[in-house]
Write a protein that binds this DNA or RNA. Structure first.
Lengths: 234, 234, 234, 234
DNA sequence: AATGAATGAGGATTCATTCAT
DNA sequence: GATGAATGAATCCTCATTCAT
């Protein structure tokens, strides 16, 4: 297989290409022109193609590299003795890595499904799942969320942080997101009631879930009609 | 002033262009080719340029139009007698509008800053602020978030919903996001403690905020060093 | 659908593109660079793409146009009262059209299968078949060839003429090819014996066809061994 | 002089390059990428250039090698006691060699003119000429063809066989081509009339050749006009 | 006013050839 | 001598914008 190049200059070039690509993709995602990456790396376009068969392959190499580090961190934290701290700390750390990195955001948002790195995706999901379960068992995370929810919230937090640019300080949106995951307590007891029960799409009131049939979307006729009227105008 | 065109056929064309552009931009965002929009509208590309000086102007016209409707809704809800319902309902309604609309997501995410519609941005912010304040006054929303936070959370919810595609049912991520906004109660009292106080970026523990100086990022030397080590490896 | 452009300048450009493409493809086949065609036509590359969605489509348009004329000619000749003259005349005429036209050679050689013009292929085959059958019925063409043989011989004649460039006069190789198709006469009778019966691949002697089994390739053991030895050295 | 390389490994490399190039060029002709050849030979691209100054030189080396074997065979057959068998057998053998070899077809088709191997071309022509003359003397080949005709027919046969791919059995087009070369007999006598005398380009009738001046192309005014009309429409 | 044709600057990719290691 | 890395011109195709009709 191709593997890493043997010659020193080639290794150096490969590294410079990866760095240039990292910056370019971080700034502009997949839209970054390959020629520009080559220029920044100080090589010809052909050299980029010697190291990576397509632009997409380069993109994935860059992103996979970062994600591998993230998976490593997650796997290390699984053994933490403070599951809540490990879980929330991990979320914040990941968001910090990704929030100004367009490419990493895209990749994590895509569930890594678009990457050929299927194993990596599973490793990531599996490590995150472990972190989540342990934090839930410790009562630090509400029990009604699963790993998929968490991944999505993580992505959302990144994107929100990115939007936040200068103001508000980094991490504020992530902190808010974490709050959505904390369990509800009443007095000193954890309240088993799920906070994110289905709610009326119009007024947001909790819906009494019917045991059978199609799940309700509205709390009553009034809201259903309101929604219908809105739909026509919007 | 440019104003609206006078002739009936011109007005009709303008309308058809806006509709075609709405669909195209909703599906593909700014990437939708202008020729395709013209084709769908049944006009020539030149006609699009007669009505809108650049593709970007057309894009803005489309999203501005949608956002105007959203502002109208917000302004209407301000007069609601149930502030919490109005606030959360509005959030869910906006997300529902935008979650499958690439263009609208982008526009709302951009804070309308990229739009030339400065007035509109202020109107939107102002109406949302009013909704927020009333809901906070009614104890339905935690007091430590501002309108900017809410806008960002709203955008995050859209993007998360979009990512969620088939599973999980629509609205789940929005519901979780709303949970992040609900006040914390202890017994029957609302707890004044802010949940999203600054937390350690490593372990997530609350930080005792120093009254002056640069805000702390870590809970102590241990975490600061941990962060430093991570930075070098990641 | 696209059809022909309506505006005079567009029609003119389309025509100029087709002419430039005709010349370029005739000279270099599909290898002719599209930019060069555009330059020769005095238009930008984009204009070529306005008229033809891909380079291949342009190629096919050029070639299909020529082949349509050829099919017309064949269909006209089917009604000739001198079947032999019509058949051989057609062959020579086609070869003359194609012999210096790389593109047309390729297209005819490919059996038009590579063209999307499936109908055209059938029309061509069908008209040629009719010409052939009538010439065979008139005793002007040996009875043991079919339309597929004729197409191949036609292609071969083109390619041979192309090779012949200056010397020998145009048409000589085609005339020889036609000779391969003429019936053998003995005295005044047409000899029913097929001339292209299977022959030994080594010495060319006619093979006595065994009534069953796999057809023989050699006239005897000597030739089979000779072939075997050759195979090893070549 | 360049000569052959001296070191054993260099000689071995040269051989492996030639073999890899043979296969690649046979399959794809000159289009085969040089890097691919180097890879198949298990050497670097630079090594190829050490042995052959350009890709074209490598191409010529490969085909020259094959053609040398063909010349050897021809020279051996000149001494055959059955001139007809030798001649036709040689044709078939050459075609069999070349019909699935893109490179060899091209090279033979090019009259070896494009090769720098001028001597080789003359040797080939000379040996083939000898075979032809002997076969003609034995009455096995019509007397009105020369060595140049035969070379061209040989090339045509290759190209036709290539086109024929699965159907018709290998050798059919070659057999037909050979038929074009066989003499015409009337009763038991060979008819001196040349079959491929110049014929009218329109109707295919034999032309009475004028003893002087430019050779006629048509049998009469009618056909000349028909040709003229065709030229305008085609 | 509308049309849709034309433009031409990019952008991804390939490959013969050169040259530092 | 060998290697294989680097080069960069060439090629196909897209699309925002302009402009003749």
């Amino acid at each position: 297989m191709s593997g890493r190049p043997q010659r020193a200059d080639a290794r150096r070039n490969r590294q410079r290409i990866l760095e240039a690509a990292f910056e370019a993709f971080a700034a502009d995602g997949r839209l970054a022109p390959l020629d520009e990456i080559a220029r920044r790396a100080g090589v010809g376009a052909g050299t980029v193609y010697r190291h990576f068969p397509t632009k997409e392959a380069l993109f994935q190499a860059v992103v996979t590299d970062r994600i591998e580090r993230i998976v490593d961190e997650a796997q290390a934290l699984v053994r933490s003795e403070e599951p809540g701290e490990a879980f929330y700390g991990f979320l914040m750390w990941v968001v910090e890595r990704a929030m100004f990195n367009h490419a990493l955001c895209d990749a994590l948002a895509a569930d890594l499904r678009t990457l050929d790195a299927h194993d990596l995706d599973e490793q990531f999901a599996s490590a995150l799942d472990e972190l989540l379960r342990r934090a839930q068992a410790a009562g630090e995370v509400r029990p009604d969320v699963d790993v998929h929810d968490v991944r999505t919230l993580m992505v959302g937090a990144m994107l929100m942080e990115r939007r936040q640019r200068p103001e508000g300080g980094p991490g504020r949106m992530t902190a808010l997101t974490c709050d959505a995951l904390r369990p509800v307590t009443k007095g000193d007891e954890t309240v088993p009631v799920e906070r994110n029960e289905r709610r009326c799409e119009v007024c947001g009131k909790p819906l009494t879930s019917a045991p059978t049939g199609r799940p309700a979307r509205f709390c009553g006729t009034a809201c259903r009609q309101k929604a219908h009227r809105r739909r026509k105008t919007a």
